[in-house]
Design a protein around this nucleic acid. Structure first.
Lengths: 204, 204, 204, 204
DNA sequence: GATGAATGAGCCTTCATTCAT
DNA sequence: AATGAATGAAGGCTCATTCAT
């Protein structure tokens, strides 16, 4: 749940607060200018500290983005748990699709996700973080799907729920890619089709 | 105003061959090291020519990746047209999902696609090429879907086919992302679920 | 909009000293190899710092030469003010002509001036600095000429003093060009003729 | 008078014509973009031949600009000789000052001259051409001045005429520099002062 | 804990020049 | 005589990272 701090970094409260400052600043810079486009100096300035000090809190630039991925994962898990606490899981998941289009920073978010994925496909350490994150999310999503299916879940083959969770994730990633590959799409029609798919995945 | 000195898009056979060499080399380098990670010197070496000469064939690095996108688009269009010539469109599309997992360079291909998308989300010129490519492909996919639906296609709302084509594309992109985010998945189960979705999109 | 990351024009003492080191080194390199001929790496080496660090002190190469122009201007203004404090303005100005030939680095100085003027004629930003510098100098020279003329100055047409200051500047520039175009000239005779001209400009 | 062709270059009529094409094109490119700004490829295109072929006609880029300097010198000599044939030498020389401001490409011409001078202060071969050119021009100017002075010329010290010719040249160079250092000057007033100077130099 | 001066490798790109044809 | 494909050495500049203070 909580991002593992590199062993050589201090764990004082102060340090944790400073780390959050960096993550906030870096996430903002990365969204606006990309992972490669944002410089450590820029991030440091946005975080209100010196470039050198970032290296007291993080191993390097990759470590910063890895921590962002972990923090994003925590946020997603939190949202899933909120949904689990609600009484209309199916409705919430269908709603996610519409919301995905409305999100204010949709394109910037997609850009950052794509960069992370691209980077992960070449960087073993980041790949591990991404894969772990996705695993955690998928496990949570499986709970969600089981809840949406109700008793019907038990009748399914054992690996069916996991596959469905995987595909739900894939669909959301596909949705994300659309913000780059098709910025001007017919939102209503696509939402309708997407929701039909989603129903197939989470309704009995 | 000033004498345009653009030897680009040369059309001699020799130049076309040289361009292909660069595209092959660059695609490979981008896959292995990313767009920012691959240097022009590296690409030149892989292409068997000097760095300077690449600039006789392409405007700049962006132009190289744009040309890769266009070449890939042509290849996809070609494959779609082959499918259209076949007699089992539905079967072919369902088969695509299984094939997608088998593809020998699946991860490398995904890496390149992600690089392109990530770069396009920061680079207006590349974005245009990507959007145009996706539009061309989507239009072809609409023909495919209409053919798969047969007469039932006419009963659908006018924007339904386009939305389905969009979603088909999104699903394939989601599939691609999985090769990074979930390299060890239950292929059989996921294929089964994916194909169910695909049927929903292309069957009446 | 985006966080301005300009450490330029730093005002710590340390930075000011470092800037002077760069200006000294760059002026020397430009004199010896020309503006285009001198590389930043060369200048950095001569200044005893890394190429990268120059960019912490100056925006870019153009900014370096612009700062040289400003420093030279300040030096000229200082010398004019010294002359104004003296009691024989006319004699001082006539003396300048002889001194101009004696100056130890006359050719190198001319080379640098010509580089600056040549570059300024293609580079709007540097041109502005040059024009501003010349304006400041001309204004000082006008004071000088008025003082040399004494009460006779008031009888002249209003734009006469300015025109004379302009021509004085032009004559000195002509003198500078001679160090390239006619390195072996009859110094005594030319000085005599030049001083006759100068008298025409600053005597009643 | 006629530019010396490098020994290893052919002297056929064809070659001479081709050389002129290059010089015309190069002079134009250099004026518009500067010596360093204009590429050989650009010049070749403007001259209607391949870059490679320029190297059959000239040794290198420096050789091209040297030939331009020689051609310009011939043009100036020609104009001086025209003046000598006229009946109002003094008037013609005073008129030159006004014309100098009117010249259509005044700034571009000045830019090129300054680049040549700057380059010459570092490049021995070009320096030689420049010095020789100036010598030829000065000798012609001495004839001009003698003619303007009439019988009074004989009463002057032997080196006086040469010094005056030198200073006339310097004044014109100073005038040229003004187009960079003071593009917005009071033309009428400056012309008036300049002509007064010129009279001092060419009138008895 | 914190700074920010300093490094230096490396990047994209340009261009004078060559040479096989 | 002429081409233009090809070279390869720089060049200006950026930036992740380090370290003395």
């Amino acid at each position: 749940m909580c991002a593992a701090l590199s062993p050589h970094h201090v764990h004082t409260d102060r340090a944790l607060v400073r780390r959050q400052q960096v993550l906030d600043a870096a996430a903002d810079c990365f969204r606006r200018r990309g992972f490669h486009g944002a410089s450590m100096a820029e991030i440091a300035k946005a975080a209100g500290m010196s470039p050198g000090h970032i290296y007291n809190l993080f191993e390097n630039k990759d470590d910063v983005i890895a921590a962002i991925v972990e923090r994003d994962r925590d946020e997603i898990v939190r949202r899933i748990e909120e949904t689990l606490d609600g009484d209309d899981v199916t409705g919430a998941m269908l709603g996610c699709i519409e919301e995905s289009f409305q999100e204010p920073n949709r394109e910037a978010e997609a850009a950052l996700n794509l960069e992370v994925l691209a980077e992960a496909s070449r960087n073993a350490k980041l790949a591990e973080v991404v894969v772990d994150s996705e695993t955690v999310i998928r496990n949570k999503a499986m709970v969600l799907i089981r809840m949406a299916l109700g008793p019907a879940a038990d009748a399914l083959p054992p690996d069916e729920i996991e596959a469905r969770a995987t595909v739900v994730g894939a669909v959301f990633n596909g949705l994300m890619v659309l913000s780059v590959s098709q910025p001007q799409l017919n939102q209503a029609a696509v939402t309708r089709v997407m929701q039909r798919i989603m129903r197939l995945l989470i309704e009995p």
